[in-house]
Design a protein around this nucleic acid. Sequence first.
RNA 1: GCGGAAGUGGUGGAACAGGCAGACACGCUGGUUUUAGGUACCAGUGCCUUCGGGCGUGCGGGUUCAAGUCCCGCCUUCCGCACCA
Length: 838
Amino acid sequence: MVSKASRSRRSTVAAMDSAEVRDAYDVMAIQDRWLPIWDELAPFRSGRADDPRPKKYVLDMFPYPSGDLHMGHAEAYALGDVIARYWVQRGFNVMHPIAWDAFGLPAENAAIKNGEDPVRWTYENIAQQKASMRRYACSFDWDRVFNTCDPEYYHWNQWFFLRMFERGLAYRKDSNVNWCPNCQTVLANEQVVAGLCERCDTAVTKKKLTQWYLRITDYADRLLDDMRELEGKWPEKVLLMQRNWIGRSTGAEVQFAIEGRDEPVTVYTTRPDTLYGATFFVVAADSDLAAELAAGTAAESEFVAYLERVKQISEMDRLDSSREKSGVFLNRYAINPVNGERLPIYASDYVLADYGTGAIMAVPAHDQRDLDFARAFGLPVVVVVESDEDPRVTGIATADDGPHINSGPLDGLGKADAITRILELLVERGTGEPAVNYRLRDWLISRQRYWGTPIPIVHCPSCGEVAVPDDQLPVTLPPAEGLDLKPKGTSPLGGASDWVNTACPSCGGPATRDTDTMDTFVDSSWYYLRYADPDNAAAAFDPALVREWLPVDQYVGGVTHAILHLLYSRFFTKVLHDMGMLDFTEPFTRLLNQGMVVMDGSAMSKSRGNLVRLSDELAEHGVDAIRLTMVFAGPPEDDIDWADVSPSGSRKFLARAWRLSGDVTSMPGADPSTGDVELRKATHRAVHDAAIAVETFRFNVAVARTMELVNATRKAIDSGCGAADPAVREAVEAIAIMLSIVAPYTAEDMWSRLGHEPTVFLAGWPAVDPALLVEDTVTCVVQVGGKVRDRLEVPPSISEEDLRDLALAAPGAIKALDGAAIRTVVVRAPKLVNIVPA
RNA sequence: GCGGAAGUGGUGGAACAGGCAGACACGCUGGUUUUAGGUACCAGUGCCUUCGGGCGUGCGGGUUCAAGUCCCGCCUUCCGCACCA
């Protein structure tokens, strides 16, 4: 495909005579000409102290160096580049940085599979991506680059971890975690896709392990409430997904006495008003409470067997909500605090150990899960909220509002009133209180992997968990050589005995380092801060520099990170704010989610055989045509189906635009005010409309306006005012500048052919003359009964009366009316008149 | 199951605040230049038509002088969450 394209290009050039060659748009030659010059000029450097321009921070999500850039990168970085370059043209000092999210599993997999050194593998990929980005003409500030796998960077991961450790925000606990029996490793929730390990598709199970967590749940309310300031600036979809993820619910905690136990057990419920309908009590089978309640009872052996069975159930099967309810009666009873009824206690896996208190009151009439369980175990169902359908008959629990019955003091009350009343009663009697719960869990950051940030903790037999002192940071990774990186349930770092065995920083006795590494989401939770001060060896960043640039004005990235990365970054920002390091609480002021590039309707993948290689596309069509195709395809947040777009069409348009620059015969600096007014109006209209389109993320429309101007200019040269008219120069220069944000090579070459020095990127967005935006005539539509029957050319300032008279006299209107009487005439000067017949 | 978003020509998509539906492209058709064309330029291109016009923004209603746009009820597709008490 490539060779065919390049062969035809060569033969084309060979067949042309010299005049044609001079006038040919040679994409590859243009790329080769300008790249070294831009390297020299570095037009997008943003760090100069004496720069008087106002600052703006445009940020693209940084890439993982898994190989060379692909079509998805090409789209994302083309869009981010339009925004960054536009603001540079508007006179801003734009910081548009890039770095590499360089820790992570693929490096380790390459090491396991091919015996590669993760360090070498990673840095080679970074070098390749960097070279590709330069050629792709990304307007990055190359002076601010870093890699998260550099000790100079992850030093500060460790430093932040320790600050959180000091504040109790980083802690270790035992918990049931996702476990892949094949990979022999812990998985984060996000790595479990439909109950399967995202890497090997093995059914995931649960395992009890001691792991490090960050206490993000402490920030749940702020993460939720602060979204108010992102309203209208972030995609509504992302805000919604974050709200759902945090999952705040309000209800009550109610204490139930347990027969034969000193302490009562607290349950959480969102429906305390249905307390009188509770007929049994359920504890999570895998909770400590269940084991304790079962201990020593006749049901103990049955419970142990059940628990064993539950543990074997894969995550995939567990998520199947149509599964039959199962459980074990523990031979024990809880006492309903409002009516003293004895509720049998069951252990079941439909109650989650880590949500609420791991125990529930079951109200089968008004909760489907409880009803399913009640029917499976023959338990009574008591309706306490009246409704048309009886759950005992239908098998469908009712959750609607309605008057309460069988509920003592709540009888007759509606849901809201009943909740208020029962809360008062519970508080009065000291058996309950209002409570809030979250779906969000603390962030598990331990990973039993090699290629990540070592957790800077030393385990000492006498002092316990001891923080590595700041002056001993960073705790650097030992070399991979000699370590067994294969997943085996414990961190590969455990095999580096020289590294693991160390002196306790507190007592000096023999101790061991923590062998887990951090989730790579830690790396990306603060990288946007590091750009402000990337080379700081004494601190993560200088707060003064961060204050200058942050928060990020515009963040651009895929919706795949809608929850985790963005939530974690927001969390970090708030923690750092509380530590006094930041003066803002939200890191990303505006967010744009770009779509994906797909092929023939589905995501590209090697196995599907629909993979389009970016390098092939670039070789065939050139950088600018690919960038233009990405931008012109449609709204940025929509997916692009590569089968539906036309990179060759993009290239033809660019050639057409480029040729204009060779036609201009007026000299640089020619005064446009003497030029052709019609073309000037088209130019100023296009520049004005394109700017609005870019600022509202309608980049495809901005390109359409540029295309219209190219068409108008072509016409003006060939059959209008002619190439010598200064309006033509004005138009072509405007086109070069408008194109500079999308197709930088073509734009720069046009700029040069127009007699200007590089670089067009700093030429400045053309000033719009408002006088040229005013039309001298407007097309007025004359409707009869809502249908267009005639058109009039009228001055925009025409009065309603005059327009009405003109419309009534319009031949098309008279014909359509056919003598009918007129009921009313709606006049919307100057664009529309609607004559309504009686 | 719950929550959300979106349905416009053959295709990708335009349409400010309820006021000319289909901008700009792709594709297709015809023409000009060319030994040739995967080039360039010009013209045409929503559907139907008895050439008067009629019909058209997923479907069915409604509001309005006027609806792709607002309201009600469906259908379809995509996305997120999924025993969260």
